[in-house]
């Protein structure tokens, strides 16, 4: 795994050839702003549906080993 990761990282360093000072980064290609939702409630899932996929359903919630351990 390490060898493969090194090979890929070595390859992507190809980018270092470019002079990119002052170039704005592009995080998304859609030129949109303010795509928002009205503050209108939608129905939540019934409890049994919300918990249906839980690997460890516990006391009406999602069980996990004690936090901090």
């Amino acid at each position: 795994m390490t060898r493969e990761l090194s090979a890929v990282l070595g390859y992507v360093e190809h980018m270092n050839e470019l002079e990119l000072d002052g170039v704005e980064p592009t995080a998304r290609v859609v030129d949109l702003v303010n795509v928002l939702r009205e503050d209108q409630p939608r129905p939540s899932l019934p409890l049994d549906v919300a918990l249906a996929n839980a690997p460890d359903e516990a006391d009406g919630g999602f069980g996990v080993p004690a936090a901090g351990s």
Binding site: P41, P43, A50, G60, F62
Partner: peptide
């Protein structure tokens, strides 16, 4: 104290039965 959550339409709640204000987005 909006009516709904930040990124989905579930109502805000305090002290309600656990996991009754959830949806695929906030889960």
């Amino acid at each position: 104290s909006t009516a709904t959550k930040m990124f989905c339409g579930c109502r805000l709640s305090f002290g309600d039965t656990p996991n009754t204000h959830t949806c695929p987005v906030c889960l």
